[in-house]
Every structure is written in C-alpha cells, then in structure tokens.
Nucleic acid binder design. Structure first.
Lengths: 341, 341
DNA sequence: CGGTACCTGGCAACCGCTTGCCTTGGCTAG
DNA sequence: CTAGCCAAGGCAAGCGGTTGCCAGGTACCG
C-alpha cells in the first residue's frame, strides 16, 4: 500500500494538518518539525495523491491539449513543446487526438477540460460560433487560431508570406501560385490573405489561387498537377507536406524544381528531407506550445478577461523565418520571344 | 458553478446516495426515481467529478503513456492508437515525452503512473534492471520491448527481417549491410539478431554490420557514407528515417538507388515520401498502441502475474509485412570479369 | 510581574462521490 | 394472521488531502 499523509504524520509524530503544511507551506512550520516531517515523507516514499489534493484546492495540476492529428508533425511539434513546458511547471498533460473530427474535438474538450486546470485547443476547422460557445466558460488558450475575446497564440502568417514573396520577387518570379490547405482552416485563410496582401500591395505580383487541398503529401500530389497546368513559375504551399507532394509530382511530370518551378513550403516540419531540400517558412513549433502553456498558466488568460477589457495582450503572435534551401531558384527566362528585357 | 451530485439529488428529491446509484448502477434504483434523477442530471448539465470518484473507487479512468520522442512518427503513431482506443474505452490519456532521456523517463513513469489506472511504457534504451525495478509494483505494459515477467506488446522483428532478407535474396543480393539504431536499443538488437538468423541460416547471405546510428535522417546520412564504402549491394536500415538518410546520401555521392544499391527501411512511417518511395517492413503502429491498451485494461496484465505463472500470454507479438516500393531492385551484375555464369 | 501579541500546531469540516449497512415497507408463504 | 424475505433508498463513513479557526505557549513590552 502506498503511504498517505496520515502515515507520514504518524511517523513524524505530528498531526496530519502539520504534515500537510510542512510539505506544501513550509514557512508555516517550525524548522525542527518540518525536518521531522520531511524525513518521514522521504523514508516512507510519500507522494501526495494529486486527485485528493485537487478535490480541496480546485487545482488538479493537469493540463489538456486537444489536437486534430498527432501524426501531423506540426501538432506533434506543438505537443512536444507543451509537454516540456508543462513538465517544467509541474503539470501533467492530457493529450487528445480528434482524428480531424471537429465534433469529436468539441466532445473531448468538454470531457477533459473538467479534469484539468486549463485547456489548449488546436482546432483549425471548427466554426467560430461553435468554438466560441465551447470556450465560453472554460479556461482555454487557442493555439494557431485567433478568436475575439479568447486568449491565443498564433504565428505571424502575414510576415511569413511577406518574406516568402520578397524572396520570390527577388528571384524574378512574377506569377506565383498558392496551394491552400483544407477549406475552413483558419490558418489557411490567414496565409492566403497574407500572401495576397504581400503580393499585390508590396510587389505587384500576380497570384493564382490553386484551391484547397488536404494538408498532406497526397493533397500535394493533386496540387502538383494544377501547378504544372498553370502558367506560373513558383508556388507557395499551405504547408510542407503539400509542398513535398507538389515537388514530387512535378518531378514525375518532368518539370524540374527549382529550374522550371520554385516551391516554398510552410512550417518547416520536414527539415532537409526530400530532394531538393525544401525552402520553407519556419515556425518554432515547440515554442508555440510552450508559450501557450505559459499564457494558460499565467492566470492572465482567465475566462472572458480579454473580452471584458478589450485588451489583446492575451493574443500572442510568434515570429517566423524564411529558410531558403533547394526548392527555390531564379525564375526561368521565358522562351516565348526574342525580346530580352 | 458546476453542478454536483448533491445538486442533482436535491433537484430530483432524493438522497445523494440514490442519485449516485441511479447514474452508475441503474439496476439498483426503481425506474420511476431513476428517470427523475436522469432528468435532473440532464437539466443541470451534471458531469461527475472524476477526481472525486477516483478517490473512493481507486480508479481514475486515466491511462498514461510515456514515449521518448513524440516527434518520431513511430511514437506519434503509437500514441494515436493508444489515444483512440482509450477514448473508446472511456479513458483519458496522459502523454509524456522524455526527450530521449532515460532518467527523465523513469521519473515521468513514477510521477504519472500514480494518477493513472495503468501505464504504457515505450522505453527502448533503459537498462533491463532499471526497467524491471521501475515496473515492479506498477500496472504497466511495455510497448515495443520485452522483459521477462512484464506484459508487453512487440512486433515480430524476426519475421520482418526474414521477409526483407527473402526479398533481397530473390533479387540476387548476396552481401547486405545493416545500419543499426542507437546503441542499447532493444528493438535494434532484436532486428539485428533477426537479420543475422535469416541471412545466415536461411539464405547464406553475408551481413556487414555498419554500426549504430541515431534513428533519424541525419543518422542515416552518416550511415550512407559507410554503405558507399562497403562492398555491398543492399542495406537494411534500423528504421525509415535512417533509410531515407542513406538513400539521400547515396544519391549525393553519385550512387543510384536501386540500380547500384537497394535500401530497405523499417516501420513504414514515411509512406511514399522520398524518391524513390521506400521499400520497408510495415508495422501497424496504431494497432500496436490499441492492443497495448487492451492488454493494460484487460486486467490480465496485472502486476507480476505473468512472472508468477510463467505464462507468456501477456506477451503479444504483432505481425509485420514487407511493403515493396521503389528502393529495392535486382542486384547489379558485377562488372569485374567477363565470365558470365 | 502581568498582559498582550504572535507564532505553532491541532481539531474538525469539507471537497464530491461511493458504498456498506440498516431501515422501511410491501409481499409472499406457512 | 404473522413471520420472513426482498427490494428500495437513506445514513453516514470514509477516500486523502487542505485550511479556517482556535488553543496553548512563548516572548516581549510596559
């Protein structure tokens, strides 16, 4: 049988109350007794029962993280960051994978958040309304998504696209494609907008919207054919997996990357895997997770607070960085006519 | 404030005891009252406090999964399977990532297992002794590792290697390399053994042991150079990431895959990513996870039971399947002399 | 030297739920 | 008609901690 606080108290010759205080509020107990209790606890291998403690204190010491797909390196990276930071702060993490099912996601949040001090939600596709309702009276931080009145941590998609566009522009590209993520994805909408702003406003590039694709290599394969058919010299993909699929498909179709078409990914989840290695907008995924944990536990992210004050200091945006590798190069010189420049 | 059982009882006009029974042991309560309680619970949006319930029942409804690296698709896959099965069975899952640190791993098991009904441990590198000690009086199932007296779920590494070897043999390869995983990895030792048994015993192939490598693409890059230097026509890697690294490095070094060298991976974690697509020994990762959950919750996997009976029905081995894709082909005909056959 | 303030530590209630035991009352059987 | 039985539901005791409140002791002050 595992040692309880009463056992420790008995062994130390004090009351349970004193034992409790000695361990969790040491300054309230005289050093001599405190030492006695500590020794007893040590000897008995005492570990407080977190469930019992949670019952009285109202805090469980647990967090909960809901993601659509742990197999997606994006979310795996976030989960790692969450996990690590939570551990440093003495919290355990419930992780729930919804298999991309928004209904299940909501269900998981409802079930698990009750057992945790706070919940981190990655839910790219849930409707704003449902998400707002779901997070109304819960202690929640949104990850990679923004919603008025809810604390959140996102990445600077606008700047990411700006960097990507500037890079392509410098390489001489003038017509570029965008292979988007799933319909309804919040971050995809932000990326698409960011791209258009940067392309039109900044550099007067033309953008061809190729449509929506599954955020996977297979999705990218489909996109690849559209890229091949469009008269563009570069394409930016919703994420790295799509970019990988596009690159591969173009190769199969006899187009060279980057000689014929440049490809840029997003997230930097695949590193140098693939050939040529992917140029991509890098996100520090683990940091995304750890910052979210901090925000969640800071107490600043209390229910409805941001809504009440109108302040948005609870909305954090993380910087991104373009990493140039092998899939981008100078735009091909058009073979159409003899007019140079 | 959230509704408690007393609230429900009051609303239904019964005692808390009756309310409790109506909800968790309906057959003990007369239908009329039961309906009353159910309605009240419904109206109040009652959700039992799992921590409190756990305090009395001793069961928390939580599981715990400890893995060395969530970013590794192998463990992400297992985690998905665990998560899904646990959810079906009404359990929540604590996931802990140890960042490949065996000491931290042990610590996590100790801390988290107390809050859970059972623990799933993926710990490829911990020493047998430490692992045995750690799992001595805990309800634990080992995943992808076997230890006498402890329930476990593994994959049939021997058969996997047998299939790989048979494939290579049929293609005419006679000298093959093995690019191993990290020193001390349990599954790597099994795979290495399996390979040797299959190669020597079955087909009289020669095996060149290339050594130990980090189970990552980068590890594979290093291995690639050794492959290039060894006079072998095929190589089997510890896992897919290593295989990917090898393939890429060989390409850089001017060797063609599979024309010059055939490459086989293990785990099937990268799918058709990479070019050519990787031939690999496929594992059903999610199934590995879900079977482990079943074993854990079956009650069969009780502490020390297998040790007592000597039975090994608590040690499950899952089948694997060679998936032939593009990185394996006929052995090159030696250009050394003119003697054909 | 008496009074007071302060520091320590114990008592006991309580967090929300489960469950052993007992009471009550309606039936059946002898 | 009464004894016996069973079903239904309430009482209360926890599960393992925490914490408000109070008592006793000590030190310090006047």
């Amino acid at each position: 049988m595992v040692a309880t606080l009463r056992d420790v108290a008995r062994a130390a010759g004090v009351s349970p109350a004193t034992a409790s205080r000695a361990l969790s509020a040491p300054e309230l107990v005289a050093p001599a007794r405190r030492a006695l209790v500590e020794k007893a606890a040590q000897d008995l291998g005492y570990r407080p029962n977190l469930a019992a403690r949670g019952l009285t204190t109202g805090r469980t010491g647990n967090l909960c993280l809901v993601v659509p797909d742990l197999g997606n390196p994006f979310f795996a990276g976030v989960a790692k960051g969450v996990q690590r930071r939570a551990r440093e702060l003495g919290h355990a993490v419930f992780v729930a994978d919804s298999d991309e099912d928004a209904r299940l996601e909501a269900d998981l949040v409802e079930r698990l958040s009750a057992q945790a001090d706070g919940t981190l939600v990655c839910s790219p596709r849930m409707s704003d309304e449902r998400l707002a309702e779901l997070t109304a009276d819960r202690h929640v931080v949104l990850v990679n998504r923004r919603l008025p009145g809810r604390p959140s941590v996102v990445v600077d998609n606008t700047d990411g696209m700006r960097q990507a566009v500037r890079h392509l522009h410098a390489l001489g590209h003038r017509r570029i494609g965008y292979a988007g993520g799933p319909e309804g994805s919040w971050s995809d909408a932000r990326r698409r907008d960011g791209l258009k702003v940067a392309a039109h406003g900044l550099h007067r590039l033309e953008v061809v919207d190729l449509g929506h694709f599954a955020p996977t290599v297979v999705g990218g394969t489909a996109a690849g054919d559209l890229v091949a058919a469009a008269s563009i010299t570069a394409v930016i993909a919703h994420n790295d997996l799509v970019a990988l699929g596009i690159t591969e498909r173009l190769r199969v179709r006899g187009r060279s990357v980057p000689a014929d078409v440049s490809v840029i990914g997003y997230d930097d989840t695949v590193g140098t895997l693939g050939h040529p290695a992917l140029t991509t907008v890098a996100i520090r995924l683990a940091r995304l997770g750890s910052v979210a944990v901090d925000l969640l536990l800071d107490g600043r992210a209390s229910t409805g607070r941001a809504a009440a004050t109108g302040a948005d200091e609870d909305d954090i945006s993380l910087p991104v960085e373009l990493v140039v590798r092998g899939t981008t190069g100078p735009a091909p010189t058009p073979p159409t006519d003899g007019v140079s420049r």
